[in-house]
Lab assay of single mutants.
Amino acid sequence: PDDEWKERLREAEEKNNWKLFEELARKAGVSEEKIEEWKRRWS
């Protein structure tokens, strides 16, 4: 299951679909801290 969400995150990233990325990350149990960090790195 871990690989599956990583794959989906990669797809979201490729499409630059931040909303989807964020949603998937939350569902995968990624901390808000980590998500914010990704946001900063991404923008």
Rank of each mutant, 00 (worst) to 15 (best):
R40G: 12
K19Q: 12
K34Y: 08
A25M: 10
E22F: 10
D3I: 07
N17Q: 09
K19H: 12
E37N: 03
K39E: 04
D2G: 10
K15T: 14
E4D: 13
N16I: 05
D3F: 09
E36W: 07
N17E: 07
I35Q: 00
K39R: 13
D3Y: 09
R26S: 02
E14M: 13
R26F: 03
L9D: 04
K27T: 08
N17K: 05
E14L: 14
K19R: 11
K15Y: 08
P1V: 13
G29Y: 01
N17C: 06
V30L: 14
W38M: 10
R10G: 07
A12Q: 03
R40H: 11
E22N: 02
P1G: 11
R40P: 02
A28P: 00
W5T: 03
W38I: 11
E37Y: 06
F21M: 04
E7W: 06
I35S: 00
R8L: 15
I35P: 00
E22H: 05
S31P: 12
E14A: 13
L20S: 06
N17Y: 04
G29K: 02
E23V: 05
N17D: 14
W18Q: 01
W5H: 02
E22W: 08
I35C: 00
E33P: 03
L24C: 07
E32H: 05
E37V: 03
R41M: 14
R10E: 10
K19A: 14
E22S: 04
R10T: 07
L24N: 03
A28H: 09
R41V: 12
E23H: 06
E22L: 09
F21P: 00
E11A: 06
D3N: 10
E33N: 08
A12S: 05
K34D: 12
G29F: 01
E23A: 08
D2M: 10
R41W: 15
W38H: 09
A25L: 14
E32G: 03
S31D: 07
K34H: 08
A12T: 04
A28I: 06
A12V: 04
E22G: 01
A12E: 05
F21T: 01
K15F: 07
A25S: 03
R40Y: 09
G29A: 01
F21A: 04
I35E: 00
E7L: 07
K27D: 12
S31F: 01
E14G: 07
P1L: 14
W5C: 03
N17W: 05
W38T: 05
E33G: 05
E4L: 11
E4I: 10
N16W: 08
R26W: 02
A25I: 06
A12N: 03
R26A: 03
E14D: 09
A25Q: 02
W38E: 06
I35A: 00
N17G: 05
E13S: 14
G29Q: 02
S31Q: 05
R26H: 05
L9F: 13
K19S: 12
E4R: 07
R26Y: 03
K15R: 11
L20M: 08
K15P: 02
